[in-house]
Amino acid sequence: MLDTTIHVRRGVMAYILCAARALVLKWSTLKAGVQGTSKCGLRGSLTIVKHVFAPSPRAAKAAPVKAAEQLGEALIKTIFKRQPKPQTDLLALACRF
């Protein structure tokens, strides 16, 4: 941190290693046997990573519940409209008490 400021200066990793007189070995994806940046896994591995992907959003987006005075009740109605089974289960549960 610099004097009279609140600014924190962070070191660059290369300079930190240099200051610590650390031995820096340069490696490469080629040396590590990485077949491609879109894949991971090392050469000779029994398993082969064919591809890496990010999960896609659901095709049908989440249905928004509009804010209303009785939001809780509106939400329950929306839930039971989409999934009636819990309502039956809950009523059956309530009837037991």
Binding site: P55, P57, R58, A60, K61, A62, A63, P64, V65, A67, L71, G72, L75, I76, T78, I79, R82
Partner: peptide
């Protein structure tokens, strides 16, 4: 992105109501 029903509100306020 993967919920079926979404409510953009503060859960702390909605949970007691629900």
């Amino acid at each position: 992105d993967f919920a079926h029903i979404g409510i953009v509100t503060d859960a702390i306020l909605l949970l007691p109501t629900l």
